[in-house]
Design a protein around this nucleic acid. Structure first.
Length: 406
RNA sequence: GGGUAGGUAGCGAAGUGGUUAAACGCAUCAGACUGUAAAUCUGACGGCUCCGGCCUUCGGAGGUUCGAAUCCUUCCCUACCCA
């Protein structure tokens, strides 16, 4: 039923940052084999940001591997913590959510996560189920099990504390709440990014306090975003979304810096170990143009989330539009009103490519607006007297303008 | 509770009565170059505009003044020190 311990460990260890403690994981797997009981593998998800991207995929893919090895994946939606939000208002990215919102986001999270996870084998639970039932006395008791010094061990807290940035008391409760999740579902393994290491470790301590066997924690490296510097995140707009269209996904992938190519292959694709090794060699020796390796990565990703055919199509389209500077094959159509046709500025603004006429005028003066391939330099130049033409704004916004003859 | 230092555009950070829509850096956007890589260069960067201008900003609210981000009052917020 289950693969052997060595086989399992081989799969599990690919790409991981840390397994703490590794021996315990081996032991747990041995026990699972002996008793024919799958391990409970936990992953917490944040319902305040339901748009998943490649960064999330790193850890989700690891979870999928556990599923393929026969283990049980449990997604915990942090609806309770999401509902509390951040009262200090310091972190605006964490607004308080209503119960309905967290539910809705949870559903959406599940839907996207199952692009990677097996739908049937994934269990999703909301942590309000047990956290909402706790009394204040329970919370105090829980909090008493951890010390301030230990909380401050956390790098994030230390840095903020030293920098003189505010840390609210309730932030100390987050790791404890997360730990309670592990207690509630009897987690054997908890996955997370390396930035979650502290929280995951707290889970071990609290499980012990509750007389449970501590979970093994497994951390995955943080995927750097397309800017090559920051962690991939939606708010920094350096992400490749799992729901991005083939075109977008392909283009965004090509925009990552060369230094990230290997990590992306390792962390976000399923390519064979030997191919991975070859890529590493090629990159190190510079024997192949990194661009071509990157194109391969982009095709791979589009094929994973869409299809092989769409990957090929996306590449062709990309070459046409950006290499040959030709037109994309699908261009949104815009039917202008008489007012929009007053001049090119009005038209550009009307298409919504820019936020206002002021913006449109700036782009025209900067030389970023083209009509049928001709650069427009005068904001007040008239709209060509044609029934149909192509308006291009910036590098990638195209509109097919069609006049309706009334 | 007492004291100190602060709160300026997406972020960081100057400015401390009068060309100040507010230096500078980062980020972003557009252009050149290119492999939608890196590096570099140029320009834009509060909002709107009939291009003449108009409107809104310097934690909030009042006030002084011809004139305030800058002075006064009050409130809110943050860090640090003392208790």
């Amino acid at each position: 039923m289950f693969p052997s311990v060595n086989e399992q460990m081989g799969v599990i260890k690919r790409g991981v940052s840390e397994i703490i403690p590794e021996d315990d994981l081996v032991r747990k797997i041995e026990k699972s084999l002996k008793t024919k009981t799958p391990l409970n593998v936990k992953l917490g998800c944040d319902p305040s940001r339901p748009d998943l991207h490649l960064g999330h995929s790193v850890v989700l893919r690891k979870l999928r591997q556990f599923q393929d090895l026969g283990h049980r994946a449990i997604l915990i939606v942090g609806d309770f913590t999401g509902m509390i939000g951040d009262p200090s208002g310091r972190n605006k990215t964490r607004p308080a959510l209503s119960l309905e919102e967290t539910r809705k986001n949870g559903e959406s999270y599940f839907e996207q996560a199952t692009k990677i996870l097996s739908k049937e084998k994934t269990k999703m639970v909301y942590n309000s189920e047990w956290l909402a039932k706790m009394q204040f006395a329970d919370v105090i008791k829980l909090a008493s099990k951890y010390t301030v010094a230990r909380m401050l061990e956390r790098d994030d807290f230390t840095l903020r504390y030293k920098a003189g940035e505010p840390i609210s008391v309730h932030e100390f409760l987050y790791p404890l709440a997360q730990a309670m999740d592990s207690v509630a579902i009897n987690a054997d393994v908890e996955l997370g990014g390396t930035d979650q290491k502290f929280n995951l470790l707290v889970g071990r301590d609290i499980q012990r306090e509750f007389g449970k066997e501590p979970q093994v924690i497994l951390t995955m490296p943080i995927l750097v975003g397309t800017d090559g510097v920051e962690k991939m995140s939606k708010s920094l707009d350096n992400y490749i979304g799992l729901s991005d269209s083939p075109k977008e996904m392909y283009g965004r992938t090509l925009s990552i810096p060369d230094s990230l190519i290997y990590d992306y292959f390792l962390l976000t694709t399923n390519i064979e170990k030997k191919d991975l090794e070859e890529i590493k060699q090629q990159l190190e020796r510079n024997s192949v143009n990194p661009r071509d390796i990157k194109r391969g990565l982009a095709r791979e990703l589009v094929a994973m989330y869409h299809s092989h055919d769409e990957a090929v199509a996306a590449e062709e389209e990309f070459d046409r539009v950006f290499v040959k500077k030709d037109m994309p094959d699908v261009i949104p159509i815009f039917y202008p009103t008489a007012d929009d046709l007053k001049n090119v500025t009005s038209l550009t603004a009307a298409t919504g490519s820019v936020s206002s006429k002021t913006e449109a005028r700036k782009k025209i003066l900067e030389g970023g607006v083209y009509i049928d391939g001709e650069r427009i330099t005068d904001p007040f130049s008239p709209v060509p007297n044609k029934d149909e033409f192509i308006l291009k704004v910036g590098r990638r916004k195209f509109h097919r303008i069609i006049r309706k003859n009334q």
